[in-house]
Write a protein that binds this DNA or RNA. Structure first.
Length: 360
DNA sequence: TCTGGGGTCCTAGGACCC
DNA sequence: TCTGGGGTCCTAGGACCC
């Protein structure tokens, strides 16, 4: 017997951070709200994390430098990012979503994929299920979301973005190519600014343009990504909704308030970051082999330098010592530093490697 | 446009081993 | 002595996601 066709939902919370802030502070409603870096009267560093729809009317967008947001909308309510709060809300919402799915995959703090294949018999039932999910999130959390329904993750994701906020878009398998064709290539997963530019140079603007291209040419130009692009343009995506993804790395980095050539400050900051990474690491009961240091100079030139140890460890002293060794080459009096960061990776199961483990 | 922070995946070159 | 091929690991950089 043939496999039952999958039905996948993608749930995307509407302007999540600002929606939570508005819920906590009803007096903000109807006003432009921007969550992100401190604008400091237009001199602030960093970017907009999320903005509500009132702020978007002024041209403010997430990812935009906060100094530009300030120019566009000085009278907005500017708030710092309260991750602890958003994480708590996110965990409750994910718990709601999880129970509706055969397979569940969270995607960042405010999105999730649900494979509901065995829960519904057709798209009409899937739509009813989506309405029920939206109702429950409104009732329990007072927040709206947009949901896309499709035969795979790609279509579901693009569909959830199609009508916002509080949207619900259903795209059946037989409608998929027609639905995608007029959309700009940028809507596809993994097509960012650079790939969009490269495609545009080839005369490809819409997903339909892409679908008509010779797949071998795409593969020659983009490698593995080219094959993927061709399949996506035809609405094909075989990737599964994956329950638990394994952690591959843990990192912390920080941009200084001002670019600095104070190497004591840089080293002390690096120690602090190493301690935070270590705290996470022990919380997850992981052992690492590789340490990567990241430095960004004032001109935004960014370098990484990494070292793989000949043993696996979870010791803070190994992390600190290696990070400090790795940064030495980058401490140059004439080059001011904008950012430092440290990452651990190459995790090895402690069980398997017992004879080599060094513990504190 | 003067560009955060936490992640994943891919590529390409070189070292090293058989 | 001037030279293969396959496999794996490491390193640095870059694109992309939220």
């Amino acid at each position: 017997m043939a496999e039952k066709k999958r039905i996948i939902l993608h749930v995307d919370m509407d302007h999540f951070f600002t929606a939570i802030e508005e819920r906590e502070h009803p007096e903000y409603r109807g006003k432009p709200v921007i969550v992100g870096a401190d604008p400091k009267e237009g001199k602030g560093r960093g970017v907009v994390s999320t903005c509500n729809y009132e702020a978007r009317k002024y041209g403010v967008r997430s990812g935009m430098p906060i100094s530009k947001a300030w120019k566009l909308c000085q009278h907005a309510i500017y708030l710092p990012v309260n991750y602890e709060l958003y994480t708590r809300v996110s965990e409750r919402i994910m718990a709601i979503l999880r129970k509706y799915a055969d397979k569940f995959e969270s995607w960042g703090i405010d999105e999730a994929f649900l494979d509901v294949t065995s829960k519904v018999k057709d798209y009409a039932e899937a739509e009813a299920l989506a309405r029920q999910i939206k109702r429950e999130i409104i009732e329990k959390e007072g927040l709206t979301c947009s949901i896309g329904i499709g035969p795979n993750k790609l279509i579901a994701k693009i569909a959830s973005d199609y009508q916002k906020p509080d949207g619900l878009t259903v795209v059946r398998e037989e409608e998929a190519e027609k639905f995608l064709a007029p959309l700009p290539v940028r809507k596809l997963l993994w097509v960012g600014r650079k790939t969009e530019q490269k495609l545009r140079a080839m005369g490809i603007k819409t997903i339909g343009d892409l679908a008509r291209r010779d797949p071998t040419v795409l593969t020659e130009t983009f490698g593995v990504m080219g094959t993927q692009l061709y399949l996506m343009a035809h609405g094909i995506d075989k990737s599964e909704v994956e329950e638990q993804r394994q952690i591959k790395s843990i990192s912390r980095d920080i941009t200084f308030e001002e670019d600095t050539s104070d190497f004591n400050l840089v080293l002390n900051t690096l120690e602090r970051l190493a301690e935070e990474v270590h705290k996470d690491l022990t919380g997850q009961q992981l052992y690492f082999k590789t340490v990567t240091l990241r430095v960004r100079y004032e001109n935004f030139e960014t370098h990484t330098h990494s070292k793989t140890l000949p043993f696996i460890t979870n010791r803070l002293q190994d992390l600190k010592k290696t990070a400090k060794e790795l940064i030495q080459d980058y401490l140059k009096p004439e080059r001011k530093i904008r950012l430092v960061g440290v990452r651990v990776s190459n995790f090895v199961s402690a069980e398997k490697q017992k004879p080599l483990v060094i513990t504190s």
